[in-house]
């Protein structure tokens, strides 16, 4: 009962936050509210037993998205949204209300929230829950489904992330012509001693935590996606406190580009190796002496590839945004 209560309260919070995002016009406040929105949804995911998802959402939504959006409004130098009177609001509003009504009508036939007999719970999920631990030797079913049973999906996702990183580089990576974009916020801020000392102390801890998440992801919540995001957040913190030039001395962009491709290459490479060893593409069972050992090794390698790719791509995206404002 208490879980339902918490669930309803969090959902109401989220709804209120979304309306506030819609009604506000100050972009900075909107972005901050969006961070709160992400955190609320992460707590909601945790309440609904999706710990891995909550972890990812907390790291991505509140960390990386917010920073990227702030970088965008710094680059576009827009503080407020212009509210034009010429817009007719009744048309979008009626479209939205009609669509929403149709969708709500559709939910009436859905099984109730948490119903163990729902179709989603009775097809392929019981197989994963029964067999995953025995077939892969990993207690975290999300990791084994992610990297092994649904390895093709995840490969596709990693390639999408990689492609998005390449596209951002193509759009913003080069030298730009307009010189009047002003000085970079990140460059000119001289941060106080306290901030620099605490950052120096924290960044190694964050990196260690990211490695823990990477390699403990087989046993607890975590894995390559989360670890990559946390690791890039550590470097983003470094950039924000010590400046872009210092960060580029620590990790040169050329190395990052190689790392991004390396991550995808590790993933696809594991697939090629399994073919050469006589299995199907991404069938890790042939990698080790026993099936379980092979699965374990394959999942570890693939997660490593995912972690490296996500880390490098997110960092490339951030550094490209940050470097755009450089005079």
């Amino acid at each position: 009962m208490i879980e339902v209560f918490i669930d309803i309260i969090l959902l109401s919070f989220i709804a209120v936050t979304a309306v506030a995002i819609l009604r506000m016009t100050n972009l900075f406040a909107i972005i901050m509210l969006f961070g709160i929105f992400s955190f609320l949804s992460a707590s909601l995911f945790a309440v609904m037993d999706a710990v891995d998802v909550a972890f990812t959402e907390a790291a991505v939504g509140a960390g990386i998205s917010t920073v990227l959006m702030l970088a965008t409004i710094a680059l576009t130098k827009t503080q407020k949204e212009k509210v034009s009177v010429s817009h007719r609001h009744w048309l979008p509003l009626s479209v939205v209300i009609v669509t929403g009504a149709v969708l709500v009508y559709g939910t009436l036939d859905l099984p109730a929230f948490g119903d163990p007999e729902a179709p989603a719970q009775t097809h392929v999920a019981p197989y994963y829950i029964d067999k995953a631990v025995e077939e892969t030797g990993l207690p975290n079913m999300v990791t084994s489904v992610l990297a092994s049973y649904r390895g093709f999906d995840t490969l596709g996702e990693v390639v999408v992330v990689f492609t998005a990183g390449v596209a951002v580089l193509l759009l913003l990576g080069g030298k730009h012509r307009i010189s009047d974009t002003g000085t970079n916020e990140i460059e000119k801020n001289e941060h106080s001693l306290i901030l620099r000392v605490v950052a120096k102390f924290l960044i190694p801890l964050i990196i260690v935590f990211a490695l823990y998440v990477q390699f403990h992801g087989d046993f607890g919540p975590g894995g390559g996606f989360q670890a990559g995001v946390i690791l890039s957040a550590a470097i983003i913190l470094y950039t924000l406190v010590f400046g872009l030039d210092a960060a580029e001395r620590v990790i040169p962009p050329s190395i990052l580009r190689i790392l991004a491709s390396l991550g995808v290459l590790i993933y696809t490479g594991v697939g090629i190796v399994t073919i050469l060893l006589g299995g199907n593409y991404l069938n890790y069972s042939v990698l080790g002496d026993s099936k379980v050992a092979g699965q374990h090794l394959g999942i570890l390698l693939v997660e490593l590839g995912v972690g490296i790719a996500v880390f490098a791509v997110l960092l490339v995206i951030f550094l490209t945004f940050a470097g755009r404002g450089r005079p």
């Binding site: 801020n189 941060h191 106080s192 306290i194 901030l195 605490v198 102390f201 924290l202 801890l205």
Partner: peptide
């Protein structure tokens, strides 16, 4: 321990940013 270090620092950074 993490909170002990980060939260006061965050408050400091926020106040400092507001001042600047």
């Amino acid at each position: 321990i993490f909170l002990l270090f980060t939260n006061p620092t965050a408050s400091h950074a926020l106040a400092n940013a507001a001042m600047q």
